[in-house]
């Protein structure tokens, strides 16, 4: 399993290489990317990153996985033109989610490796087949709301079609709401009484706990369920599927890459997290070489207790 790390400053590249990243990805402000955080503002920066990546023998990909944009200046023609320029510079892959972008890339016969982003999550083999048959994928990034065992069909299909697979690291990405489709943070559909950046998934943080009532007046749900809903509504939503067990299973099923993608993290935090992931993968490699899978899994999980 190899590591893909985000990069938001060219100087991070040789450091990440030394720490153990195998590939990197960047975002450019003129290319629609999810979150739009810490995107490089100039093409010169993008060129710098590509050159440094090549010098350090790292593959480099470009995030083009935005669905919405606050910038009305990004036009279809403009963005496709920029994508073509960046491909000519030597980017190795494009991370995409929008069906419209995929369609145009195909129509214009733009020759680039396509990675399907988790922002357009694939939860079943038919969905992966839809995208691969229609647009031709090189890689699929699995959503963190799908366990390894649930992904078996998808992973087998990907292996058969020679599509690389990528997952997130379980400790650094755990939102239970469907990525790319969630309105719990963007304030568009409700009116804030208290100004806050926090999403509605954490109602109890920083304020009085939310209260829960039965919607149906003549029904009294059990105390156990009320408490469960209360806890989840106030403190971060429903259970996480991408746990340590699932991560081990992804590794043993041969998933090719693990992504670390918090672009808003400082450089030092990025270095720390990539080191953590590298350590985990090295540990997995060591354990699976020495023990059978069930023993290796027990020992791996123990390291996180």
């Amino acid at each position: 399993m190899r590591i893909v790390s985000c990069v938001t400053d060219p100087y991070e590249i040789p450091v990440l290489k030394k720490i153990g990243a195998d590939e990197i990805y960047i975002a450019y402000s003129k290319i629609l990317n999810y979150g739009e955080a810490m995107s490089f503002k100039s093409l010169a920066d993008v060129i710098s990153c590509v050159k440094l990546a090549k010098k350090n023998k790292l593959k480099i990909h470009l995030a083009a996985n935005g669905i919405a944009s606050k910038k009305e200046t990004i036009t279809l023609a403009g963005m496709i033109g920029d994508i073509k320029k960046i491909i000519d510079i030597g980017i190795d892959g494009l991370i995409v989610s929008n069906v419209g972008i995929l369609k145009i890339i195909k129509k214009e016969r733009i020759n680039v490796n396509l990675h399907l982003s988790s922002v357009n999550p694939v939860f079943n083999t038919y969905a992966l087949d839809f995208f691969h048959s229609n647009f031709g994928l090189s890689r699929v990034i699995l959503p963190n709301q799908l366990s390894a065992r649930e992904s078996e069909g998808i992973i087998n299909y990907a292996k058969e079609k020679k599509i690389e697979t990528e997952v997130f690291y379980f400790k650094f990405f755990g939102c239970p709401y469907i990525n790319g489709f969630c309105y719990m943070h963007n304030n568009s559909l409700y009116t804030r009484n208290i100004k806050s950046e926090r999403g509605l998934c954490l109602l109890g943080k920083g304020s009085k706990k939310a209260r829960i009532y039965s919607f149906n007046n003549n029904i009294n749900p059990s105390k156990k369920i009320i408490e469960r809903v209360m806890e989840r509504v106030n403190f971060g939503g429903s259970p996480r599927i991408l746990n340590v067990s699932s991560f081990f299973d992804f590794y043993s099923m041969g998933v090719n890459f693990v992504k670390y993608g918090s672009r808003t993290d400082s450089s030092n935090l990025k270095f720390y997290k990539v080191k953590v992931i590298r350590k985990a993968i090295d540990r997995l490699s060591e354990l699976t070489a020495k023990y059978d899978l069930s023993e290796a899994k027990i020992r791996f999980m123990e390291s996180f207790k």
Partner: peptide, 30 residues
């Protein structure tokens, strides 16, 4: 779901069929 739990599938109890829930919070008007 425990961190070490192997998830073959979502073990749904279908407890949502009992009723829906209204959430009242001071954070938003609605």
């Amino acid at each position: 779901i425990k961190p070490e739990e192997t998830i073959e599938k979502i073990k749904c109890n279908k407890e949502c069929l009992c009723c829906d829930y209204v959430v009242k919070t001071e954070k938003i008007k609605e």
